[in-house]
């Protein structure tokens, strides 16, 4: 017989799919409005944003009581994701700073 936990888990899994669907749809709507002018910053920005996988890595790196394997995997993942989060947002900002309307003063 089905337990309450099982039912709840199924509900959660469907909720996750709803979240994915809505986020992908909203993303489509926003991203198609982004001008080609900013497509390179867009790619480095989404790359930085997806470094949010850092939050998953943190939990493994910090759960040292679960054994060395997951701690090591987690720590390397924290390193890789932080590289992207820090590097991604910084280079995006560096690029966006270059887009100026009037260059008379610097030219």
């Amino acid at each position: 017989m089905e337990t309450t936990t099982q039912l709840m888990e199924t509900t959660t899994q469907f909720l996750q799919l709803f979240v994915f669907l809505l986020a992908a749809f909203t993303g489509f709507q926003i991203i198609t409005k982004i001008p080609t002018l900013l497509h390179t910053p867009l790619m480095s920005a989404t790359n930085a944003i997806s470094a949010i996988s850092l939050v998953a890595a943190l939990v493994f790196a910090g759960a040292t009581d679960k054994g060395a394997v997951t701690t090591i995997l987690g720590t390397v993942a924290v390193f890789a994701a932080t590289t992207n989060a820090v590097g991604g947002f910084m280079i995006t900002d560096r690029m966006l700073r270059m887009f100026k309307r009037d260059t008379r003063k610097s030219g």
Partner: peptide
Amino acid sequence: LLHHDIVSYQWIAIGIVVGAAVGAPMA
């Protein structure tokens, strides 16, 4: 970092510091 599974911050700190040290100069 408030997550209840996290019991030690040592490896997290190392990962973040090294990651930032590699990522920032690249940018």
